[in-house]
Design a protein around this nucleic acid. Structure first.
Lengths: 241, 241
DNA sequence: CGCCCGCTTGATCGTCATCAAGGGCGGTGG
DNA sequence: CCACCGCCCTTGATGACGATCAAGCGGGCG
């Protein structure tokens, strides 16, 4: 039962909590529970109230909502070191999404009382929280922008470029962070469409695909695709738009 | 030149600032500028940095981004009493959207220093800010949900129901908050499509439209449309999905 | 009175979802 | 070691929803 020690250590190393005093870390730790979740298990359903939030230690959690028709849309894939649920906690409203483990995972659940105490005590912490929420908001707006004024191909390219990082140029290899099914949903596509797009990109020599691994062969050209107005008529390019 | 008095009064009445002390209000007021904006004028462009945020006193501002192709997508329509730009301010990153006046408007621009001081001084204020940002995040997620798993008709209905408020039942009349062009963009539709949808809804006897005024005739049935799985086969209903 | 702008209406086209099979690969058991 | 099965992904054929292009309409304002 080395839980207590573990939790304090883990908390203290998170960017969000880096600069808190030992006392506050200890205080947070008392309100913190460890959660192990096996692949496929649901952490909470859409509509639940949360009076705390979660941090992923390892594993992978997907946040998604599902229509009454049973369709599901993945909003976010959260990995180690990332947190989720803060907004719901501060809002005191039912959670708009559900959370499910994509792999066996280990999380921390941090009760809001400790957070609130830390805010009262240390206004720099409040600043970090505000900045964190703001970043989240920002990326959500990016999503809205992607969904509303970019084609499916552009969304895929944008996603790949993001995974590739800002590379020096030259080919970059990386792995998709989840099954193609999940990725497709995250990008608002069907798996079929994603498959076709990846196929067509590799036909154009822009990328190479083997299973979950992808090589971005020509990052420069890829980026150009990403946001170029389709030239007046992209001649003969069934493949592209 | 009654600006100073005005500003203090206006600030003190905003929900966000209700509970601040007179001293803090005064402090905020010194960092606050009044801005008058005539219809059509652009307040800031996408990519600008902000070191403060805005509150609409009267008028109407649209937040939007535009693709390189010149297409424009309205993210939000902000009216009197509402604020915008906080997230950008806290994030210290370029603004992801542009802001333009839809009517002659009057705004307050509040410098971040006063806000930061208030946070340091009054942790309840920090809580309110956090809750405010969280609400914003929540509604953005709703938007994503709408865009990704609801048909255009469902989005329109959802929007109308929101305008109608939670009515007692029976017909409700209200006005669209902006031109149909802007509304359409907000809902991720072309004006043509919006027009057709409104037409088809009024043909079905669900609403009546005269210009910008709309009467929701059958709110109950409207709500049902809003989220019902299309019954196995909605017989003969070209009008509906 | 006439113009301009916001909206409507009609015809056509593209993109992407849907439906339906067909691979390929890993795991399991004979 | 091979055969079988399940799962994930791919590939193909079709269709629907909504965008685009192109006129018409009406009403407010100069």
């Amino acid at each position: 039962m080395s839980k207590q020690i573990d939790i304090g250590r883990v908390l203290a190393n998170l960017p969000l909590f880096q600069q808190l005093s030992d006392g506050e870390i200890a205080n947070l730790a008392t309100g913190t529970r460890e959660i192990r979740l096996e692949k496929g298990r649901i952490l909470f359903q859409k509509g639940c109230a949360l009076d705390g939030f979660y941090i992923t230690v390892y594993g992978q959690i997907k946040l998604a909502f599902s229509s009454l028709q049973g369709h599901e849309k993945v909003v976010s894939i959260v990995g180690p070191g990332q947190s989720f649920g803060e907004a719901v906690m501060f809002m005191e409203k039912p959670c708009p999404v559900m959370a499910q483990a994509l792999e066996n995972s280990r999380l921390l659940y941090i009760a809001k009382q400790g957070i609130f105490a830390a805010i009262d005590h240390d206004s720099a912490f409040a600043h970090r929280l505000l900045a964190g929420l703001s970043m989240r908001l920002h990326s959500l707006i990016q999503d809205v922008e992607n969904y509303s004024l970019r084609s499916s191909t552009q969304r895929v390219i944008g996603f790949l470029l993001q995974l590739a990082g800002m590379p020096t140029s030259g080919p970059v290899e990386f792995a998709l962070p989840a099954s193609k099914h999940v990725i497709a949903s995250r990008l608002n596509l069907t798996p079929e469409t994603l498959s076709r797009i990846l196929h067509s990109l590799s036909e154009s020599g822009l990328i190479a695909v083997k299973g979950r691994r992808i090589v971005a062969l020509d990052v420069a050209r890829l980026s150009r695709f990403d946001d170029s107005p389709p030239p007046p008529c992209a001649k003969g390019s069934r493949a592209v738009r």
